[in-house]
């Protein structure tokens, strides 16, 4: 099995989330090769878990004031605040037979190459069930999956140099119930790579690509234009609409 490594394309958050659906469907239909894709974003955003309540997770007035896109993902899991250049996000699009059937085992298995890649540059991280990647200092990232009949998308976002104070203003992490002390601990729970390794974001992405290519048969590729235009259509019909993003 040969994988495509896609490491280009800067898109808005609605288009990014739309691409996830289009790419996993193309693979499911046999029209795409197994792929790993690195994300480049246009602006700060919140990626909400599919089943999360919009108003519970986001400080809506603040996010609107800062012009932050709030986009509901196709995948479950928790809300992530993301900034271009300050997080690393990648997606794996895999045939279902290449993914362990057991969900918990599949998160561990699909995170492992990335954990090893980060280890190779001196970042001590590990998988924490169900879907977290943690550093001794706190959570550094998380993954989420969506399964189709014959394909799985597994996407992961990790903090490289995230502004965690801004994150706490944008996300309502237990806002109503927590004291200042609790907020301090919430902030502590998030670890950012740049505090622990002297490497640029580009160097970390290069290490991820190298480890992936060492472990699996992989060739550079790009997102087909037809897929991008389909994703743009779905973004304007769904992922950029209040109807989808505020449906819960």
């Amino acid at each position: 099995m040969t994988y495509r490594i896609i490491d280009d394309g800067t898109y808005s958050e609605p288009v990014q989330q739309a691409l996830e659906g289009v790419l996993v469907e193309r693979l499911d239909e046999g029209d795409l090769e197994p792929t790993v894709r690195f994300w480049y974003r246009e602006s700060p955003a919140v990626a909400l878990g599919r089943f999360q309540a919009y108003e519970d997770e986001v400080a809506v007035d603040y996010a609107d004031h800062r012009d932050i896109d709030i986009v509901r993902r196709l995948t479950g899991g928790g809300a992530m605040y993301v900034e271009p250049g300050a997080v690393i996000t990648y997606s794996l699009y895999l045939p279902r037979e290449a993914v362990p059937a057991d969900i918990e085992a599949s998160y561990a298995a699909l995170d492992q190459w990335a954990i090893d890649a980060l280890g190779s540059i001196g970042l001590e991280v590990s998988h924490e069930p169900l879907n977290d990647i943690t550093h001794p200092d706190g959570k550094i990232g998380g993954s989420a999956q969506l399964r189709k009949d014959d394909a799985v998308v597994h996407h992961t976002t990790m903090s490289y140099a995230l502004d965690t104070s801004e994150m706490l203003r944008v996300l309502r992490i237990g806002e109503e119930t927590v004291s200042d002390k609790a907020i301090e601990s919430a902030e502590k729970r998030v670890a950012v790579m740049r505090d622990h390794v002297d490497a640029s974001r580009e160097a970390i992405i290069a290490a991820l690509k190298d480890t992936f290519a060492e472990r699996f048969d992989a060739e550079p590729g790009s997102v087909p234009n037809e897929v991008i235009s389909e994703a743009r259509t779905r973004a304007s019909e769904t992922f950029a609409t209040e109807e989808w993003n505020r449906k819960l």
């Binding site: 878990g49 599919r50 089943f51 999360q52 309540a53 519970d56 196709l74 995948t75 479950g76 899991g77 928790g78 809300a79 969900i103 069930p129 169900l130 989420a144 999956q145 969506l146 399964r147 819960l248």
Partner: peptide, 30 residues
């Protein structure tokens, strides 16, 4: 205990007429 949060909102009189389930969990198929 897994760390996930589950919120249930219900509208009811004698019977539950509406329920909303939200949180940071996963469901397959969604």
């Amino acid at each position: 205990p897994t760390g996930k949060l589950l919120e249930v909102e219900v509208t009811y009189d004698e019977r539950v007429t509406d329920a909303r389930v939200t949180g940071d969990f996963f469901l397959e198929p969604p």
